[in-house]
Design a protein around this nucleic acid. Structure first.
Lengths: 252, 252
DNA sequence: TTATCAGATTTATCAGACAATATATTGACG
DNA sequence: CGTCAATATATTGTCTGATAAATCTGATAA
């Protein structure tokens, strides 16, 4: 309370394109999602934020507008800004999801997302195997191959993401792609967990190749099942090691 | 062009909680989504918007921040604001979806959404039939019954929406609910299309009751199939009358 | 007890300034 | 004539201070 957190204002002049209102939105958003201000709470007023972060009031206002666009909060004159009920939050937003993934409820989040993937991804793969173009197939195969030959973990994860996105793109539904992108980006920070032992990696790679093959051969049912196997494997890996719900590792 | 559109500024003092920056965000967002400014286009600068709408620059900036939060545009000093490529748009946002539904590509939109519902809703119903609580079941049954006894079209539509949302809530996945809410709210304006003849309504009601029954009896497979039947019916109705892609009727 | 009105508080909006930054122009030099 | 560096310029980013509007609180009056 007493200590102004000062880490956002002009003292940190300008960190690589990170504009101040982004930082402020990020900070406030994260606090809301992780539960510092439960739904219904009246937030500190603009002047207080302004002083807390050492930024101008317009910056605070712009940040708040961004959070309003995500339905995290709303405001009215004389009342102030308050946290909206959870049901209204725009959970299907990359940043909100990222904040959620970094919150204490990380574990719940992971469970929810995995279940959600069971709904989306098998169907996406099935659609992809029916509608893929040649060039889309190429992209899928390429990403799959790069997963296999990746030297570092981050390389592999990146290829994995490309693989999933390529499938979603090939599925040819404009809503599916952003949804998948959302999930992937939200899981990004948690994927470091799910691949650790070499055996896991080999097995996962086989499962990915099954998917690739099914799509290549245009077999929707096989694709569906292959994706389900991959998800089940991911579940198992998570359960094996993530049970304790331990804190996330530092970024990087 | 020459005529400043003036319909947004202070001259229209304050229409029922509609703040000016919302109107501005709405106007600009709609223009972007309907293609007035294709991706990559540099938008008019803040001063121009400000003059165009007859509002202060801060209002324009706050509106732009809201659109940035939806990834419709981005901006940098000296460049200005530009429309982001479509793939980056936050299509899974209620307002963006609404704008899309009102755009000339309405027909594409409807097709995409319907296909998407085939992915989401059957699984949601299946989950709901496994996990519903008694009180959730009550809500589902109540909404279904109210659909049957509704006197006006808008009453029926409202009950229909409640029905779908109740199922999604009962499915017990935190991501499913907003997704469904999104779809329903996006379709709201288009649902006036899909129910016109009395026979259609009777048939649709039967299909809804099949879903309700399957969930009540906790039969996931039956629920899945019942939802698919309902969707197929909706498809058929749309195809029968929406083929021409004619303009939407006025609001109300 | 209830209805009405004044005051206080907070956001909404406006206006004007300076800073930061990336493009475009211009000039110097080989 | 071509290449590179310095400068000019346009635009957003940010700050500051002021006024308007809205609504909650409490006081006052019927």
């Amino acid at each position: 309370m007493a200590t102004k957190s000062r880490s956002i204002g002009r003292e940190t002049p300008r960190i690589g394109g990170t504009f101040v209102h982004f930082s402020v939105a990020n900070e406030i958003g994260q606090r809301i999602v992780r539960g510092d201000y439960p739904p219904g709470t009246i937030l500190p007023n603009e002047a207080e934020w302004s002083e807390m972060f050492g930024v101008g009031r317009s910056v605070v206002r712009e940040a708040i507008k961004m959070l309003m666009a995500k339905n995290l909060l709303a405001s009215r004159p004389k009342i102030g800004s308050w946290v909206e009920p959870r049901e209204r939050w725009n959970l299907l937003d990359r940043e909100v999801l990222t904040w959620y993934a970094a919150s204490p409820e990380r574990h719940t989040f992971l469970k929810t997302v995995q279940e959600f993937r069971y709904i989306i991804e098998p169907e996406a793969a099935a659609l992809a195997s029916q509608r893929r173009s040649e060039s889309q197939m190429e992209a899928i195969s390429k990403a799959c191959h790069e997963m296999g030959t990746a030297r570092t973990l981050s390389e592999r994860t990146a290829a994995d993401t490309r693989f999933h996105l390529a499938i979603l793109r090939a599925a040819g539904n404009e809503l599916l792609l952003p949804l998948g992108a959302l999930i992937d980006s939200a899981l990004e920070g948690l994927f470091v967990f799910v691949t650790r032992e070499v055996n896991d990696i080999r097995h996962a790679q086989d499962l990915h190749e099954d998917i690739e093959k099914s799509i290549r051969l245009q077999r929707p049912d096989a694709a569906r099942k292959a994706v389900r196997r991959l998800l089940a494997n991911t579940d198992a890996v998570i359960a094996r090691q993530g049970g304790g719900g331990r804190p996330a590792p530092g970024p990087g």
